[in-house]
Amino acid sequence: ATVHVKGVTYHFDNPEQAEKFAKRMAKELNGEVHVDGNTWHVD
């Protein structure tokens, strides 16, 4: 799974980790999470 945060890409072997990371980053950055298959975007 892949997480894109403000133009930076993070790779996770575990999709659950990717989801938790994306949601945590969105919270910290006051952003929104969008999911597209195995790819998470934090804007």
Rank of each mutant, 00 (worst) to 15 (best):
V33W: 14
A22T: 02
W40G: 02
K6C: 15
K20D: 14
F21K: 01
A26H: 02
N14C: 10
V33Y: 14
V42Y: 01
E19I: 05
Q17R: 06
D36E: 13
L29F: 07
G31T: 07
Q17N: 11
E19R: 06
A1H: 14
N38Q: 07
M25G: 00
L29Y: 06
P15D: 10
T39H: 15
F21A: 04
E19P: 01
M25F: 04
H34E: 04
D43M: 15
T2H: 12
R24Y: 13
P15F: 11
E28C: 13
Q17S: 12
A22E: 01
L29H: 05
T39Y: 09
V42A: 02
N38F: 10
D13H: 07
F12N: 00
V33K: 02
W40S: 03
G37T: 03
K27N: 08
E32Q: 14
V8F: 10
G7N: 07
F12A: 00
P15Q: 11
Y10W: 06
V33H: 04
D13F: 06
V35Q: 15
K6Y: 12
A18T: 00
A18F: 01
H41Q: 06
D36G: 04
H11N: 06
N30C: 12
D36M: 12
G7Q: 04
N30V: 05
Q17M: 12
T9N: 07
K23L: 12
V8C: 14
F12H: 01
K20M: 12
T2F: 14
G31E: 04
Y10L: 05
K27P: 01
H34S: 08
D36V: 13
E28D: 07
D43L: 15
K20S: 13
Y10Q: 02
W40V: 04
N14T: 14
H34D: 04
E32I: 14
E28F: 10
E19F: 05
K6S: 13
R24L: 13
K23Y: 13
H41I: 15
K23F: 10
Y10P: 00
H11L: 10
Y10C: 05
V5D: 01
K20W: 08
G7K: 04
H4I: 15
T39S: 15
V8T: 10
N38R: 06
D43Q: 11
V5S: 03
E28N: 06
K20Q: 13
H41G: 03
E16I: 11
V42G: 02
Q17V: 09
N14G: 07
K20I: 14
H4P: 00
T39I: 14
W40Q: 02
E19N: 04
N30S: 08
D36W: 10
Y10S: 02
H4D: 06
G7R: 04
V42I: 08
V3E: 00
H4W: 13
P15S: 12
E28A: 10
K20N: 12
N30E: 07
V5Q: 01
E32H: 15
D13Q: 09
D13M: 08
L29T: 06
V35S: 10
A22R: 01
K20T: 09
E32Y: 14
D43S: 13
M25H: 03
N38I: 05
P15E: 08
N14D: 14
G7C: 07
T2N: 09
M25R: 05
G37S: 03
K27I: 12
V5K: 01
N14Y: 09
V8Q: 11
N30R: 09
F12K: 00
H34V: 07
A18Q: 00
M25E: 03
W40C: 04
T9Q: 10
T2I: 12
L29V: 06
W40I: 08
R24F: 13
T9M: 12
G31V: 09
Q17H: 11
K27C: 08
A18W: 00
F12V: 01
V35W: 14
G37C: 05
V35L: 12
W40K: 02
V35C: 07
A1T: 09
G7H: 05
V5F: 06
A26R: 02
G31M: 15
V8M: 12
K27H: 10
H34C: 13
G7F: 04
M25S: 04
E32D: 12
T2D: 07
P15W: 11
H41P: 02
V3G: 00
P15T: 11
V33P: 05
E32K: 14
E16M: 10
E32V: 15
V5T: 03
A26F: 02
A1S: 11
V42W: 02
E32L: 13
E32C: 15
A22P: 00
H41F: 15
A26Y: 01
E28T: 07
V8P: 01
K6M: 15
F21V: 04
K6R: 13
A1I: 14
E28K: 11
V42S: 01
V5E: 00
K6F: 15
E16S: 10
P15K: 11
A18R: 01
K27A: 12
G7A: 04
V35D: 03
K23A: 09
H11V: 10
V3Y: 00
Y10N: 01
G31Q: 06
D13Y: 06
E19Q: 06
V5N: 02
L29S: 05
V3S: 00
M25N: 03
H34M: 06
T2R: 13
E28Q: 10
A26M: 04
W40L: 07
H4Q: 11
N14I: 07
R24Q: 15
A22V: 03
R24H: 13
T39W: 06
A26W: 02
G31K: 05
V33C: 08
K23C: 12
L29W: 04
K27R: 11
V8Y: 09
G37Q: 04
E16V: 11
F12C: 05
H41S: 07
V33F: 09
T2C: 14
A1P: 11
T39F: 09
N14E: 10
W40R: 03
E32F: 14
N14R: 06
E19A: 08
A22H: 00
M25P: 00
V3W: 00
K6E: 10
H11Q: 08
L29G: 04
R24C: 10
M25K: 07
N38V: 05
V33M: 07
A1E: 04
D13C: 09
E16A: 12
